[in-house]
Amino acid sequence: MKKKFIPVFLSLGIGLIAQEKNGNTESDTIKAWSIQGKNTVMLNQAAFSNWIGGGANNVGWLAGANYNITYEKDKDLWENIIILGYGQNNTKGIGTRKTQDVINLSTNYGRKFAESWYLSGGVSLQSQFAAGYEDGNNPEAAKISNFMASGYVNAGVGVTYRPNDNFTMTLRPANARFTFVLDKELQYAGNYGLKNDSDSALFQFGFLGTAIYKLKLMENVDLMNTASVFSNYIDHPERLVLSYGAILNMKINKFLSTNITLDVLYDHNQIQKTQLKQTLGIGFAYNIDNGVKRSDKKDNQSWLKK
C-alpha cells in the first residue's frame, strides 16, 4: 500500500508545481481557476535501550494531500476538494498498523441567483484505502472495513451560500446517498445498514447539509473546519448522520509544518456510539497557491453585479 500510495502525492505535487511556475506575472495569475493545495509527509520515531521507564521501538509515517480547486467566472462557481491521507506505525513486538486512512473527494457546481447564493448540484465520495480490523487494526483480528467497504457516494441538488473564500455552506433538500460494501466478507445483514446478506449497497434519500469554514488564528497558524449532517427521509429520519473534522496547521517554515487533526462521527448504521479520531504530526510540507481568484481582486468583481 505504501509503495502505491506515495506516487499519488508525488504526481499531484509535480503537476501542480509545474503549473505554478508557468504563472510569472500578476496578469497571468488573475484568472478564473485557482488551486490551493498542501502535500505533507510526517515522520515519527522512538528508540529505547535499557530504559527503565520502558517503551517499545517504533517508527511511523503519515502522508497527505489536501487540495481546493476552484473556478469562478461571471455567475459560475465550481469548487472541487481532494483530501487524501494514509499513515502507518510499526512497533517492535506488535507489528505494522495503519494510523490514518481517508479518501474524501467532492465537486459542486453553482449558478448565482442572488448575492452570495447559488443554485447548485454536486457529488462526493468518502472511503478508505486499506482494510481495517478490530483491536487496533490488528490484521489477525476480525476485519471491519476495506476499500469501498464502506464507501459513501452522495449526489444531490440544492443551494450554496458562499459570502467569501473562507466560508461555504451547501444545503441539499434532495440528496441520494449510496452506501457501498464491496468486500464480500462484510456483506451481511445489519452491517453498515445492509438489509440482507450478500447485499453490496444501500440506498437512502434525504437532506444533506455541509459547511467549510477556514480560520486564520494567527500568523502561520490556520484552522479548517468541516461539518455535515444527513437525514434519511425514507427510514428513521431522526437518526442523523453527523460529522465534524478539524485540521490545525502550524507552519514552521516553507517546508516544515505541524498538523493536528480531529474527526468526530456519529452514524447509527456503523456503530451506535460517537466515533473519535485524532492525529498529530510534524514533517515536510509543500504548499501550492496557484492563481488569484477574480473575487480576490476588487477591480475584477464586475461579475458580482450581474
Rank of each mutant, 00 (worst) to 15 (best):
F205M: 02
E115F: 13
G132K: 03
N196I: 01
D235N: 07
I69F: 02
N220G: 06
Y86S: 12
L125N: 01
N290Q: 12
D296I: 07
E79Y: 04
I288S: 00
I282V: 11
A56N: 08
R294P: 12
G95D: 01
G122V: 01
Y67H: 00
S11A: 14
D28E: 13
V153A: 01
A46Q: 14
T170G: 08
I247P: 04
K73M: 14
S231N: 02
G281D: 02
L125W: 02
L10H: 10
M250V: 12
V8Q: 12
F48Q: 03
N137M: 05
G209N: 04
K21F: 13
N104Y: 08
V292C: 08
V102T: 15
K112V: 09
L280R: 08
Q278M: 14
A56P: 08
A176Q: 07
Y286N: 09
Y233G: 08
K21I: 11
A56S: 05
S200F: 01
T25Q: 06
I35M: 05
S145R: 15
I81Y: 13
W51K: 10
I288R: 02
F255N: 04
G281K: 11
L208F: 03
I144H: 15
K306V: 11
L242S: 02
N232W: 02
S27E: 14
R97F: 06
